[in-house]
Computed example of a mutant assay.
Amino acid sequence: MPKLDQTESTLEIASTQGIKKGKTNFSKKFRDPHALHPAANAVISVLLGILAFSCVFPFIYVIIISFTGEESIVRNGFELIPKEWSIDAYRYLWGMKEALFRSYGVTILVTILGTVISVFMITFYAYAISRPQFKYRRFFTFLAFFTMLFSGGLVPTYIVVTQFLHLKNSIWALILPLAMNAFYIIIMRTFFLKSVSESILESARMDGASEWRIFFQIIFPLSLPGIATIALFSTLGYWNDWFTALLYIDNPNLVPLQALLMKIEANLEFMRKNMDVAILQKSLFDTIPQESAKMAMVVIATLPIAVSYPFFQKYFISGLTIGGVKE
């Protein structure tokens, strides 16, 4: 009996070693051909880390300068570790908090409404010209592409917006001129053609689904990565826009954030270059943190959109996990 037990244990050890060896040989034989070597993976990770830091570092540097004392900037220039810290720039901007909060509200309203309107208009247009059963898809595709190459010009656009549409000094003047973008239409059209299977739509039509139901319950979820992309671009476009307000807005209650900050910076620059005109106000001008205030304005204008970007990221990831029909 002891000999039998010893034999069985020996066989178990041999079989276990054989299984492990077989798994090792199998893993070596069927190793993923696209897998990177650990050394190459480490080098690429380091390079991508350096690239990511180089993208984030300028914004960090701007934040540091915005908290630097104005006298330190005048004496030593811009420093990564300033010798004098100060919040005078933010105190100066806080002195005009009513105008800033009002402009923030206008910008947030324009960004949200504009993004929603822009996304729906672009996706509706792109979905229509991506379907082979739409008779005039070639004409409308050419119409969108043509506007990428040629435009009516600034003066005709201004006349249409102010004289025909009567949008001057209204919130819609900040939204509608930027609602349609031909480049985004072409992007979404290509996305619909490549990512949405026609068999899904045919099966839905055979089940009696209307085009509206097909779009909102099938097309929209499947196209979430593309829609999130153009939504992000539209959001950035509306948030950073100041030229539209310069053209169509005279009412101070409708001035968006970027236009207000541009006016503040222009006033600071004007006072700096025309000290002979503002000689009576020189003592007041000397107390204004000019350089740090400019950097503080960059932080105020950029930080909210930078903080909100990770919320868009989850829609990219979740949209990629949505499946479809395999042809």
Rank of each mutant, 00 (worst) to 15 (best):
I64Y: 01
L93Y: 05
G95P: 03
S170L: 05
I81L: 14
S283H: 12
I305S: 08
Y309G: 06
V298E: 02
A42W: 07
F78Y: 15
A179W: 06
W212V: 13
Y90M: 06
L47P: 00
I214D: 01
L257A: 01
D286W: 10
I200L: 15
A266P: 00
I171D: 00
K97P: 02
R137S: 07
S170C: 03
F183Y: 12
L167W: 09
L11H: 08
N76A: 08
L176E: 07
S197R: 13
F139K: 01
L176M: 10
N267S: 10
D276C: 01
F139V: 14
S15M: 09
L80I: 15
F53P: 01
M148G: 03
A89I: 01
G153R: 02
K135W: 09
S103L: 06
Y92N: 06
L11W: 09
K326M: 08
W242F: 14
K21S: 11
T157D: 10
R213H: 12
N41G: 13
M271V: 12
V299C: 13
L232R: 04
N181E: 05
R131V: 10
I65W: 04
M96H: 11
T235D: 03
F311Q: 10
Y125H: 05
M275T: 15
M148K: 08
I117C: 11
A52I: 08
F311G: 06
F145T: 06
I108T: 15
N25I: 14
R272V: 09
S318F: 10
I175K: 02
F139L: 12
P310I: 11
D286S: 12
A182E: 03
I219Y: 00
I230Y: 00
L257T: 01
I200R: 04
V56F: 11
L193F: 03
F67R: 04
E265F: 09
P225M: 05
